[in-house]
Design a protein around this nucleic acid. Structure first.
Lengths: 190, 190
DNA sequence: TCCTGCTATGCAACTCGTTGCATAGCAAGC
DNA sequence: GCTTGCTATGCAACGAGTTGCATAGCAGGA
């Protein structure tokens, strides 16, 4: 299980409330890890009980108060120990691949529409990633010269993870093109 | 949920027992969908109750008897209806990406070993996929001329899914090289 | 004979993740 | 004053997935 560790990383990058974490999981962190707010609240409570994080009540004006979480020493130690642990290369779950093989036993017309829809979704996500990259990592003069600081490391690591997302989307778009070409090849002949 | 649908597809391609399905989920189907034998047995039982599949007791010599499942009309209809339903593009879960961003707050040496281990695992899987492709889809004279049959469609769809796996592994290897280069760039300077 | 190992099926307990719902403060517009 | 919408937190129930364990037939080797 890594949700708690994803939360620790996110809180180390910047403390925040459960709500804010949920927003982050819709964007940057969510590019490679999803979680709903229910899950986050539940896990945060457990982490608080375990002493991994500490809470601070933050009154706000114009909106409801929030609880701001930050990482405690125990949490940092837990993250550190998890980082040492080897993990298994992820197991994949591709509904779409199941559908593609299933299309051999059904009318492929619906599948073609579905694949085109997915390709568009991946195009959109790619555009979104590229925009984020231009915004956050192509800033002028940022990483030119000077000594490397811990903040540089944080940025560089965030960037390489984003590049992974970009590579993934590009690969998917190419493959979905391949799928469509394959479907077109034998589709009309039936 | 798609496990039951993955099972339906697999049983349509070839009827088999729960045990055999579990083996298949370790190979071909398992390239894009994982399941343990517990899960498979449980779901098979439910599918039998729902009339999606039918069982046939098959006595065997030299080994325990087995129950061979095959798809019933209701199951085929259920699969067909699921194939019509649009699904959401998958949500990703990459432990490794969490670790990479977490490495900003810890010693990156362990991460480097981890990334190298994963790269090797992806290399192995790629070699395995390529061997499977050569064995199953590069057979001489198979797909040269003649009219397209439903069996051709089945094969072509299996092949395009495998090509997806190959593209995925190649992308991952390239990205992990990028990660290692990035770690090397700022790692020594600390 | 006993142990190991493979085929084959299954139960029970647990954790993880999703879905639906509920509450509440406050702002903006009709 | 009412509705809509965003921030913010949470409960309860369910379904999916994992882990540990148990059973049983049979083969082969020490």
């Amino acid at each position: 299980m890594a949700l708690e560790h994803a939360i620790l990383v996110s809180l180390l990058e910047k403390p925040g409330s459960g709500y804010e974490l949920a927003r982050r999981f819709e964007r940057s962190i969510g590019y490679f890890w999803t979680a709903t707010h229910q899950q986050i609240y539940r896990v945060l409570k457990r982490m608080e009980n375990d002493g991994w994080v500490v809470v601070r009540d933050v009154p706000q004006q114009g909106r409801p108060d929030k609880k701001e979480y930050s990482v405690a020493d125990l949490g940092r130690a837990a993250l550190s120990s998890w980082l040492q642990d080897p993990i298994e290369p992820e197991s994949v779950r591709h509904d779409l691949a199941v559908k593609i093989r299933g299309a051999a036993f059904d009318d492929p017309a619906a599948l073609i529409r579905e694949v085109e829809r997915h390709r568009q979704a991946h195009r959109d996500r790619l555009a979104h990633y590229l925009a984020g990259e231009a915004r956050d990592f192509m800033a002028p003069g940022a990483d030119t010269a000077g000594p490397k600081t811990p903040l540089d490391a944080e940025r560089e690591l965030q960037h390489v993870v984003l590049r992974g997302g970009i590579a993934y989307e590009r690969m998917m778009i190419g493959w979905l093109d391949d799928v469509l070409a394959t479907l077109a090849r034998f589709g009309p002949g039936r």
